[in-house]
Design a protein around this nucleic acid. Structure first.
Length: 574
RNA sequence: CGGGGCGUAGCGUAGUGGCUAGCGCGCCUGCUUUGGGAGCAGGAGACCGUGGGUUCGAAUCCCUCCGCCCCGACCA
C-alpha cells in the first residue's frame, strides 16, 4: 500500500517553467519525474511504478507470444558497430566514450549488432529457427535537440526485439506475430493508436509499420483515410495519380516573362500578358538539390512544395540531402535561379526525378533556363525524360487515398512502436549464418521491433489527462484505487484503512492518503493530479454510514454504504 | 549546427546602477482549522549560473564560458 504520509513525493502547485507539453508538465507536477539535464530525467517512486507497469504489460505480451527476454549491457565496445559501419554512420547522435586504456566504447542507441552476435554465438542450425528475443533496456542517443520532456529524451527506456528466420516467409510470419503482440500490448496500455506504413529509415530494411499514438503535440505527421482505413506516415504516403490523356501538345514555345522568379509571379504574368488562364498547378517547379554533393533536380507541380523528408526517404542510398544554395548556383551558371526547366537536363548533366503527378505525356509551363524567360508545352517524354519517379511533393489534407481515392485527413502523433523487416543487413555484416537441410550455410533474415517504454508513459499522459491532472488507465496507474480520508477524528482514517486492507487482500492496488495534517482540498487536488482511476473518499458521509466513490476519468460520483464499497470496486475494475 | 528566449531559495517569480535581494507556494515551530490547494504568529532556506571587466558601488552594464527552453536542420 502506498501511504501518502510516508510516500517520497512532493507535488507542485505550478507548472515547471520550461515545460510546454502536458505530459511533461503533469509528470513533473505530480511528482513522477524530475529533470536532470536536457533530455535526461530521474524517476521518483510514482514514476517508477508507472514505468514498471508499462514494462510489465509489454513483458507479459512478449512472453505470451513466445518471445524470450535477454539483457545486454548499455555500455558497448566499438568493434561490432565498426563492422556494420554504424560507428561512422550513426554520426554525432552516438554517445561515445573511452576507457582508461583509450579504447572506444559507446552507449547503445539500439542493439541490432549485439542481438545478431548473441545468436551467432549460440546457434548454427536451421533447426534452431525461428527465434525471437527481446530486451528492455536504457538507450542513449545524443539527440541534436531533445524536446517535449519524456517524449524525446537522450536517455530513454526501450523494448527492442529481433526475430531470426531462415527465409522471407518465416520473417513475414515472425513479423505478423509481433504485430499482433503489439496490438494487444497497446490495447492493454489503454492507448489510442494507428498502425501506419512507414519507411524503415536509417536501420535499413524493407517492410515497415509504425504504431502511432494520435496526439496534437506529437511530432510525427501521418495521413489517414476515413473510409478504408489506409494509414501512412507522410514520408511513406503513396501518391494516387489518375491517368489522363493529354492529347498532342503543341511544340515547345519560349515566352518573355520578365521578373518571374517565383511561381506566383509567373502565374500572374502568364495570365495578364498571355491571357493563359492558368493556375500554379499548371506550372512545373524544378527544385534543385544537392544529394551527397551531386546536383539533382526534382520536379513537382508549381502549387506544391517539395517535402525534403519524402524525397530523402524515397531516394535510395542518399545520405545527405539539402537545397541548392546561392554558392551552388554560382558554380553552375547554366542553372538560372527561378528559371530552371527540365528540357536541358541532359545537356547540363543533371539527374531528374519527378513526382508521380508529372506523368508521361503531361505538358507544363516551366523555366527556359534563361533569365526572364519561360517555356510552355514542355512535354514529359517528348521534351524531357526523367531518371525516375519519386515521391517528392508535400502531402496535403484532402489528397486522394492510394487505395480508395477518398480524400485523406492529416493528423499528428507520437511514435510509440515500430516494426520492420530488417532483412539480412546485419546478419551479412556480422556473418550470422545457419546450416540448412542440405548442410549449406545460409544468411539469416531478421526483423526488428521496438517500443518506446518511457515514451509510452508520456504518450499515455498526453492522451489521457485533463486540466487538473493525469488520468491513468488501470494497468498503468500507480494504484487502482486512491483512498482519501478526511476529518480530524480517527474514525475516517480507521475506516479508510480497513477498506484499503480489504481491497489489497483482493488484489487491488491502493494508494491511501492517510495524512493527518493536510486539508481535504489538498488531498482532493493531489488525488486528481496523480491520476489513479478510482477515488474513494471517507469523510463526512460516515455519519450515514457511507463513503464516496469517484471515477477520475468521468468525474462521476456516487455514495455507497461502507459495506458495499469493496464489492463495488471489484465489480468496476473487473 | 542556424535563429530566438531565459538562468534570482526545492518550485513559480519581482527587482534594469545605490541601504540588509522582495513576494507566493512548499518547508520548520506553536496555536487554531479539517469536504476543495485553510488562518494567525514566529522561523530556516539564495556565493542572484560561471569567470573576467567597467564603476566609489553590479542581480542590474560589457565580454567569456556553462546550462536550460522554443523554432528550424536532424532524429524511435
Amino acid at each position: 500500500m502506498l501511504r501518502m504520509s510516508s510516500l517520497f513525493l512532493r507535488t507542485l502547485r505550478d507548472d515547471p517553467s520550461d515545460a510546454t507539453v502536458a505530459s511533461h508538465k503533469l509528470l513533473v507536477r505530480a511528482g513522477y519525474v524530475r529533470p536532470i539535464a536536457a533530455g535526461i530525467f530521474s524517476w521518483l517512486p510514482l514514476g517508477v511504478i508507472a514505468l514498471r507497469n508499462v514494462e510489465r504489460v509489454i513483458r507479459e505480451e512478449m512472453d505470451r507470444a513466445g518471445f524470450q527476454e535477454v539483457h545486454f549491457p548499455a555500455l558497448l565496445p566499438k568493434d561490432p558497430y565498426e563492422k556494420t559501419n554504424r560507428w561512422e554512420e550513426y554520426g554525432p547522435a552516438l554517445f561515445r566514450l573511452q576507457d582508461r586504456k583509450g579504447s572506444d566504447y559507446l552507449l547503445g542507441p539500439t542493439h541490432e549488432e549485439m542481438f545478431t552476435l548473441m545468436v551467432k554465438g549460440e546457434y548454427s542450425s536451421y533447426k534452431d529457427l525461428p527465434l525471437t528475443i527481446y530486451q528492455i533496456q536504457t538507450k542513449y542517443r545524443d539527440e541534436a535537440r531533445p524536446r517535449s520532456g519524456i517524449i524525446r529524451g537522450r536517455e530513454f527506456v526501450m523494448k527492442d526485439s529481433y526475430s531470426f528466420d531462415l527465409d522471407d516467409a518465416g520473417l513475414e510470419t515472425s513479423y505478423l506475430k509481433h504485430r499482433d503482440a503489439y496490438i494487444s500490448t497497446f490495447n492493454r496500455l489503454g492507448m489510442k493508436f494507428n498502425i501506419v506504413s512507414a519507411m524503415s529509415g536509417a536501420m535499413g530494411g524493407s517492410k515497415s509499420e509504425e504504431f502511432l499514438a494520435p496526439c496534437s503535440t506529437g511530432e510525427d505527421t501521418y495521413v489517414l483515410c476515413p473510409k478504408c482505413g489506409y494509414a501512412a506516415n507522410v514520408e511513406a504516403m503513396i501518391t494516387k495519380v489518375e491517368t489522363r490523356d493529354f492529347g498532342n501538345p503543341a511544340a515547345m514555345e519560349i515566352l518573355d516573362t520578365p521578373n518571374t522568379p517565383t511561381i506566383e509571379s509567373l502565374v500572374e504574368v502568364m495570365n495578364s500578358k498571355y491571357n493563359a488562364g492558368i493556375t500554379a498547378a499548371d506550372t512545373l517547379k524544378n527544385v534543385l538539390l544537392m544529394a551527397d554533393g551531386k546536383p539533382i533536380s526534382v520536379l513537382v507541380p508549381g502549387d506544391r512544395e517539395v517535402d525534403l523528408k519524402r524525397v530523402e526517404a524515397n531516394l535510395a542510398g542518399v545520405k545527405e540531402l539539402r537545397l541548392f544554395e546561392d554558392e551552388d548556383f554560382a558554380k553552375r551558371p547554366e542553372l538560372v535561379k527561378g528559371y530552371v526547366g527540365p528540357q536541358d537536363a541532359k545537356k547540363f548533366g543533371l539527374k531528374l526525378y519527378a513526382d508521380p503527378r508529372i506523368q508521361v505525356g503531361s505538358h507544363w509551363i516551366t523555366g527556359a533556363n534563361q533569365k526572364n524567360k519561360h517555356m510552355r508545352y514542355v512535354t514529359h517524354g517528348r521534351d524531357f525524360e526523367v531518371d525516375g519517379f519519386i515521391e517528392a511533393a508535400e502531402v496535403r489534407e484532402g489528397d486522394s487515398c492510394p487505395s480508395c481515392a477518398t480524400p485523406v485527413v492529416i493528423d499528428r502523433a507520437i511514435e510509440i512502436g515500430h516494426i520492420f523487416q530488417l532483412g539480412r543487413k546485419y546478419a551479412e555484416a556480422l556473418d550470422l549464418t545457419v546450416l540448412d537441410k542440405e548442410g549449406k550455410a545460409r544468411v539469416v533474415t531478421m526483423g526488428s521491433y521496438g517500443i518506446g517504454v518511457s515514451r509510452a508513459v508520456a504518450a499515455i499522459a498526453e492522451q489521457s489527462h485533463d486540466e487538473i491532472g493525469l488520468i491513468w488507465p488501470e494497468e498503468i496507474a500507480p494504484a487502482k484505487v486512491h483512498i482519501v480520508a478526511t476529518g480530524k477524528d480517527d474514525e475516517p482514517f480507521a475506516v479508510a484503512e480497513k477498506i484499503a486492507l480489504e481491497l489489497e487482500r483482493k488484489g487491488i492496488s491502493v494508494m491511501f492518503d492517510d495524512r493527518r495534517d493536510s486539508s481535504p482540498g489538498v488531498k482532493f487536488k493531489d488525488a486528481e493530479l496523480i491520476g489513479n482511476p478510482y477515488i474513494i473518499i471517507v469523510g463526512k458521509g460516515l455519519q450515514e454510514g457511507k463513503v464516496e466513490f469517484r471515477v477520475r476519468k468521468t468525474g462521476e460520483k456516487s455514495e455507497l454504504p461502507i459495506g458495499e464499497i469493496v464489492a463495488h470496486v471489484m465489480k468496476i475494475t473487473g
